[in-house]
Design a protein around this nucleic acid. Structure first.
Length: 137
DNA sequence: GCCAACGTTGGC
DNA sequence: GCCAACGTTGGC
């Protein structure tokens, strides 16, 4: 069964445009155990929503996991993991965090409940709802 | 730039 | 094993 995820990034460091420019990316540098464990759960073909944090936070695009967890080459110490992913498409419109927080259907999203987790699971219900939001204004 | 929330570290 | 101190993330 396909799983859904949400990955956060600071656009000034590495944003959607960077990923699109390169065509694919290695998701490395995760240094939080919960986030790492989520990375390790990812399967090839899983979809991950691409979220920009910082100024004007929200979801910008959709990505697909192309390589499952392997040791993070940027880790000098400790057992950390990285995955590879590629952009699928930008969302038809940017979905701001502010709007997500207003939806009753999304009030249990990890994004809302645990704002600081950088790699998090998204339920199928939440995923479907977000894709519907994408089509409305 | 501030601060709340959370994770990690280290003393005991 | 508890908890205070500290560092980091990320919304505002």
């Amino acid at each position: 069964m396909k799983q859904y995820w949400l990955i956060k990034t600071e656009p000034s460091t590495y944003g959607w445009d960077d990923l699109v420019k390169k065509g694919s990316g290695m998701w490395d540098g995760v240094r939080n155990y919960q986030a790492r464990n989520n990375l390790r759960q990812m399967k090839q073909g899983d979809l991950a929503l691409f979220y920009h944090s910082g100024k004007n936070p929200g979801i910008t695009g959709l990505t697909e996991i192309t390589r499952e967890a392997y040791p993070d080459p940027t880790a000098v110490e400790g057992e950390w993991s990285a995955v590879d992913l590629k952009p699928v498409r930008p969302l038809k419109r940017f979905i701001p965090l502010e709007e997500i927080k207003q939806k009753r259907e999304l009030k249990n999203m990890v994004l809302v409940k645990n704002t600081r987790l950088s790699v998090q699971p998204v339920t199928a219900g939440e995923y479907d709802f977000l894709l519907k939001m994408e089509l409305t204004t």
